[in-house]
């Protein structure tokens, strides 16, 4: 066990855990931030996607010991009031069915749009291919990403 100082959603947090513990479980079990979801544990489904700095990463494969002083953003911290353009587009398109994968989809999409504010359909598919939606809301996810992009560019 070791102490780690983390900056999560702009707040300083301290946890005493096994250094190998993935951020996914630090967030869920220790910081009680359960918006980040467990789906596969092997970086294949994308449900656990968070931002490390500006990049989307799979928190199930990110040991707490590798975070150091980098900013962590989870779905809970993406915006103050659920008003990030990607969140708003998701609500506008009413994307979700069960909803379980959508935090990961939103975190991946928001990091992607930051780097590529005006993506083509093919670029969206490529960027989002690591995020499984078992309910099959892919066409709506794509629509929402395009709406978020156009609202940002407006």
């Amino acid at each position: 066990m070791a102490n780690f100082n983390l900056k999560v959603n702009g707040k300083n947090e301290q946890v005493d855990v096994d250094p190998a513990t993935p951020m996914l479980w630090v967030l869920r079990d220790h910081l009680k931030l359960v918006g980040t979801k467990y789906g596969c544990g092997i970086a294949q489904c994308g449900a656990c996607t968070i931002h490390l700095g500006d990049n989307a990463v799979r928190s199930c494969q990110l040991p707490v010991s590798a975070v150091n002083d980098q900013d962590i953003t989870t779905i809970e911290g993406l915006s103050e009031n659920g008003d990030h353009p990607v969140q708003k587009a998701w609500m506008e398109v009413d994307v979700y069915q069960c909803g379980y994968c959508q935090a990961g989809q939103i975190m991946n999409a928001s990091a992607f749009l930051k780097n590529n504010p005006n993506p083509t359909d093919e670029e969206i598919e490529g960027a989002m291919n690591g995020n499984i939606c078992r309910c099959g809301t892919y066409t709506r996810i794509k629509k929402a990403i395009k709406e978020a992009a156009s609202s940002e560019n407006a």
Binding site: V34, T36, E76, Q87, W90, Y96, G99, Q102
Partner: peptide
């Protein structure tokens, strides 16, 4: 008519909704 998912805002803001998110003080895993 079309009405939006009543849990929509909770889903996109990551509020605890699912069984896996359930927490009770003192519970074991």
């Amino acid at each position: 008519t079309s009405k939006k998912n009543v849990d929509g805002r909770k889903i996109v803001t990551g509020e605890p909704l699912y069984g896996l998110d359930f927490h009770r003080e003192g519970m074991k895993l």
